[in-house]
């Protein structure tokens, strides 16, 4: 099954990259705020049971994909 893991910096964590992009957007006249930059990970995970596949993706987040000091993840089974 196709799994999409979205990794975001936690709310309190400074995101200088997001800030720079926000300033860039302001430069083009776009009214935006709170721009945050994250990472999108897509993968094929064998299995037919969505809940079981999601649990395995969660284990992958815990082991490697996410650093809990600064990041949080949301998992989508497509």
């Amino acid at each position: 099954m196709k799994v999409r893991v979205s990794v975001q910096l936690k709310p309190g964590i400074l995101d200088p990259q997001g800030k720079a992009v926000e300033q860039g957007l302001h430069g083009f006249g776009f009214a935006v705020e709170h721009v945050r930059i994250g990472r999108l990970i897509e993968m094929d995970v064998p299995g037919a049971d969505a809940a079981e596949v999601k649990a395995r993706a969660q284990a992958m987040c815990d082991k490697l994909l996410v650093n809990p000091v600064m990041e949080k993840a949301s998992i989508e089974v497509l």
């Binding site: 200088p16 720079a20 000091v69 600064m70």
Partner: peptide
């Protein structure tokens, strides 16, 4: 060492980018 959890914390991008 931080990623291996031998030390606490994380090293983020420099504030200046």
């Amino acid at each position: 060492l931080c990623e291996a959890q031998l030390l606490p914390g994380a090293l983020l991008r420099n504030a200046s980018l």
